[in-house]
Amino acid sequence: MNKILEVKNLTVMFGETYVVDNVSFDLEPGKVLALVGESGSGKTMTALAMLDLLPRSADHKKGEIWFNEQNIFDLDPECMRKIRGNKIAMMFQEPFTALNPVMRVGKQITEAIDAHQRRSHDEKEGRLNELMERVKLPRAIAMSYPHELSGGMRQRIMLAMALSCSPDILILDEPTTALDVSIQKHVLDLIKQIQETEQFAMLFITHDFSVVNMIADDVCVMKEGFVVEKGPKDEVLKTPKVQYTKHLISCIPRLGDKRGRLPG
């Protein structure tokens, strides 16, 4: 197995509270690991740790994150800046807060390219066109400001930004929550397709098991900061070992079963 990133015994604390507790997993090139779990279980904090972007108030962190034979926690800020957005890219959970409100979204994408690569103006324009097409947005949308876009459009702009530098590792935090099923399917197919050609490793954070089914190779289930179950997708979905995973899968509403109440 050739790992590109290795998370070893990651622990994150805010004061006395453990929000990530002894979490370990590996990412492999060309593979998708889905990180699932209930709201507040520590998924986003795990991802932020991989970019060394934990909030300053997370005063205790332990463990190691190995990337290219380096422990991310030992790197100086300058080295980390070169990796972030370039080698390891992340699409954040809340697109509105992650976008600059006073800059056109197309410019934000080309600036993301500028930050890491020397490209001519024409090359950047070409890349921008390609990215807009990939996320199924008309080119004219690049001229808009974030507040002029719908929730799903902003989400796709964030995805284009994350893809802009062809990263080795792509972290997507709830990337399709604002997308209707048909665009969601398109975006997931597209991510899969780009991934198959570029062979990057992916950490896909979601709360939705039907999305897991569509995209993941392996699954890691989190609860209250712990990993409670880990394994190949088919195993985890078909024969979940832990009660918690079974429960999450059983709660998925299906069309047509008009129940008065949902099991919760």
Binding site: S39, T177, H207, H247, C251, R261, L262
Partner: peptide
Amino acid sequence: DEPVSSLDVSIQAGILNLLK
């Protein structure tokens, strides 16, 4: 407006039931 989009099914179910 998409009030439960980032909630897992179990919490989602609780909130939808509550809204009803």
